[in-house]
Amino acid sequence: MSTVQPVCKGCGQAIWGNYLRALGATWHPEHFLCAGCGQAIQGTSFQVHQGSPYHVECYRRQIAPHCVYCDKPLMGEYLVDYWGQKFCREHEKQFAHCAYCGRLVSPEQQESGAQAVRCPICRSTAIETSSEAKPLFSHVIRWMNAQGLMYNNLKLSLDLCGRAHLADLLREGNVGHSLGATTSAMYTQNGRLVRTEINGIAVLQGLPAILFQGVTVHELGHVWLIVAGAHDLPPWAEEGFCELLSYRYYVEANTPESRYHSTSKERNPDPIYGEGFRRMRQLSDRVGFPRLIESLRTTGNLPVVRG
């Protein structure tokens, strides 16, 4: 009765005597070599990278990714954020998240006295003054016009405001969400709306530039709906339409940050903003964006889809 002699994967020769099993193969002990230093791996502890074995220390020095926050080699389980940044699991609970991009912000990176946590990247493009906001506001208006949204010579104004003032505007019943508001006054007579006076839009101070633009697009969407006379849309349709505009702006910008915000809209679980956006996007895809705009402009309502 014959037995099959094990063959060393390292040298391709039959093994007579001691051998070891690793990585689904058999090896002469002296031929099970570290891909990092070329020396034999003694004992049972080793790391594998792209199918090759490494001494634990060689893997740590040459292969292991390092935590983006503490620079520690990541030898076991670790986390990866939306941006592809790798970091130690424990930092997820130790550090705050940036309010605008979701990146972790270590204590030494945080601003003292800030009302919202901002990472250095978002802080680097933050719109803090009216002079910084003005050219972006003009660019957004031109973009809205190119989408077919005209404002009938309405004087459009922007108020760059703090959180307290924005919260006051929202409490007063103006349309908007936590980052912006559309300020207007509605005049009724005998229960009927007779006139709507638009005061302008307000956007939170300190937003990173691309988010500032996306919020501005959203709020100008509300202004356009008022100008077009689309007063009777359900909340999901009105907010969904404005979110669709903002989404289209982000997609066209096509930067890493704009893609983050467009993806956030796609995944938003909110029944008004998230589900409203998805319903309006589906409607736009079905009838075409120009027809959606034309229906809102001429009838004040969404287009009728048959069949």
Rank of each mutant, 00 (worst) to 15 (best):
S2I: 08
T3D: 10
T3K: 12
V4T: 15
A14D: 13
G17R: 09
G17N: 05
Y19K: 11
L20Q: 12
L23P: 08
G24F: 04
T26C: 06
P29D: 08
P29Q: 12
H31T: 10
F32S: 08
C34V: 02
C34T: 09
A35E: 06
G43S: 08
Q47Y: 12
V48Y: 01
G51T: 12
Y54S: 10
H55Q: 04
E57M: 08
C58S: 04
R61Q: 14
A64E: 04
P65I: 10
P73L: 11
Y82S: 05
Q85W: 04
A99P: 12
S106G: 10
Q110G: 10
A114Q: 08
V117M: 03
R118M: 14
C122T: 01
A133I: 07
P135C: 10
S138H: 10
H139W: 02
H139Y: 04
I141V: 14
W143V: 05
A146T: 07
L149V: 08
Y151Q: 10
L160G: 07
R163P: 05
H165Y: 09
H165G: 02
L170V: 13
N174L: 09
G180P: 04
T183H: 12
A185F: 13
M186S: 15
T188H: 14
V194I: 15
T196E: 10
Q205R: 11
P208R: 01
I210G: 00
L211S: 01
Q213M: 11
I226H: 00
P234Q: 13
W236N: 12
Y250T: 04
N254A: 15
E266S: 07
E266H: 07
P271N: 12
E275P: 01
R278V: 02
R278W: 07
R281E: 11
Q282T: 15
R286H: 15
V287G: 02
I293A: 03
E294M: 11
E294N: 13
S295N: 03
G300W: 03
R306S: 14
